[in-house]
Design a protein around this nucleic acid. Structure first.
Lengths: 185, 185
DNA sequence: CACCATGTGCGGCAATTTGCCACATGGTCG
DNA sequence: CGACCATGTGGCAAATTGCCGCACATGGTG
C-alpha cells in the first residue's frame, strides 16, 4: 500500500502536518502515519499550525475543516503560500459540497469525510485530477440531506452568520440553530 | 430580444455554452442568460458541445454532470484544453461531494446543485478562490421552496409515482402525500 | 376466475419538530 | 457608556411527522 520506504533516515522522511482539535484523533492518526514513513507533527489550532508550518514547511498536511476559532480553510491558503507543492487533504466530520468546493479551489488535494483510515488518506495524497474514476451516483439525495447541503451553502456564503442565514432562508433562527446541531439526515 | 439597449454589439458579447440534455432547461436558462448579456449557444450531448466549442471557443460554459453517454466531466477537460481561461460551472441534479471535488480539480469554476437560478450561475462565474467569502446576492429560494422544487423533479423522474419517490427521498409516503397537497411555501 | 403485488387516498393518534417567546452573554461601534 | 447585534438556552403551544390501519383500483399470473 505504501510506496514510502520505512527505513529512510529520520530527516529524509517526508514531513506531515496533522491539524485537528481532537487530540485523540491526532494521536491515532499520527501513529498510523508515522508507521507509514512520515515525519509527523501535530497542531490543534490554526495559530499553532501556522507557526509550525513556517519553521518546518511540511510536504503533506491533513487539516480538519472545523477548528475552534478560524476555519481550517484559511490554513490551506497559508500552507500553499509557503509551499505550493504541499499536498493537503481536508478532513471533516460533516462533509458538505460547499466546503468541499471551497477547499479544492483553495488548493487542497482532496476532501474526505470522517471517519477515514490512514490508507484512504494515503491514496488521497497520491490523487491527481485525472486519475480518479468517479461513479456518478444515480440516486438523489434525500430531502433531509438536500436541505442540509443547501443550508451549509447559504451559511457559508454568509460567513457562518446564523441570524442572517435564518432570515434569508425564511426560517426561525431557533430552528436553524437546532438543525445545525444535528448531523445530516 | 429587442430590449438589449445598453448591451454590447452582438459579436462583442461574451459567449456562453450551455450543455444539458434537458431541452426545457436549456431553453429557459438560455433566455435568462441572453437577457444578462451573453451570446448563448446550447448543446445536448458531449459531441455536440465539443464541435461547437471547437468552432466558437466559448468564454463561459455551464455543463450538466450527467449527460447521456459520457459524463459531463470530460467536457470540462476538453473546454479547458481549448482555452484554459474558460469559466465553467458544473450543474447537477444529483449533487455529490465526490463529483464536486472531481469537477473542481478538473478546472471547473464552481459546482452547483439544481435547481439553480441564473443569478446564482452569474455569481458562480465571478467566483474565484479568494472572493469566496464575499456574500453573494440574496438567495431567492427558501428551504421550503427548495424542497418543493426538488420533490417535483424527483417525482417527475419517477413518472409521478408517489410511493417510489417517497422511498428514494427517504420520507414517509404519507408525508409526501401531504406535502404534495400544499402549494410551494 | 381468484390471488397477489403494488400504488393510491385518507383518517386517526402519538412523537417529534416548529414557531415564538423570554432572558443572559459577549462583541462592536459611536 | 448605551445601542445594537449575534449567539446560546429553556419553555411551551401549535404544527408537522411518522406510522398504523383500511378501502379501492390496476395489472400480472397460475
Amino acid at each position: 500500500m505504501t510506496n514510502l520506504p520505512l527505513l529512510e533516515p529520520f530527516d529524509d522522511r517526508p514531513t506531515l502536518l496533522i491539524v485537528d482539535d481532537d487530540l485523540t484523533f491526532c494521536e491515532v492518526l499520527s501513529r498510523a502515519m508515522s508507521r507509514r514513513g512520515f515525519n509527523v507533527q501535530c497542531a490543534h489550532t490554526v495559530e499553532q499550525a501556522t507557526s509550525l508550518a513556517e519553521t518546518c514547511s511540511p510536504e503533506y498536511a491533513t487539516i480538519d475543516l472545523r477548528l475552534v476559532g478560524t476555519s481550517g480553510l484559511v490554513l490551506v491558503e497559508r500552507l500553499r503560500a509557503l509551499d505550493s507543492g504541499t499536498r493537503i487533504v481536508m478532513l471533516t466530520g460533516y462533509a458538505s459540497i460547499t466546503t468541499a468546493v471551497e477547499a479544492i479551489k483553495l488548493g487542497a488535494t482532496h476532501y474526505l469525510a470522517k471517519p477515514v483510515d490512514a490508507d484512504e488518506i494515503m491514496s488521497a495524497f497520491e490523487r491527481t485530477a485525472g486519475n480518479a474514476e468517479v461513479p456518478i451516483s444515480t440516486h438523489p439525495l434525500s430531502v433531509g440531506r438536500l436541505e442540509w447541503e443547501y443550508i451549509q451553502r447559504v451559511l457559508n456564503e454568509n460567513n457562518g452568520n446564523i441570524s442572517t442565514t435564518a432570515r434569508i432562508l425564511n426560517m426561525h433562527r431557533r430552528t436553524l440553530q437546532r438543525k445545525l446541531t444535528k448531523s445530516p439526515r
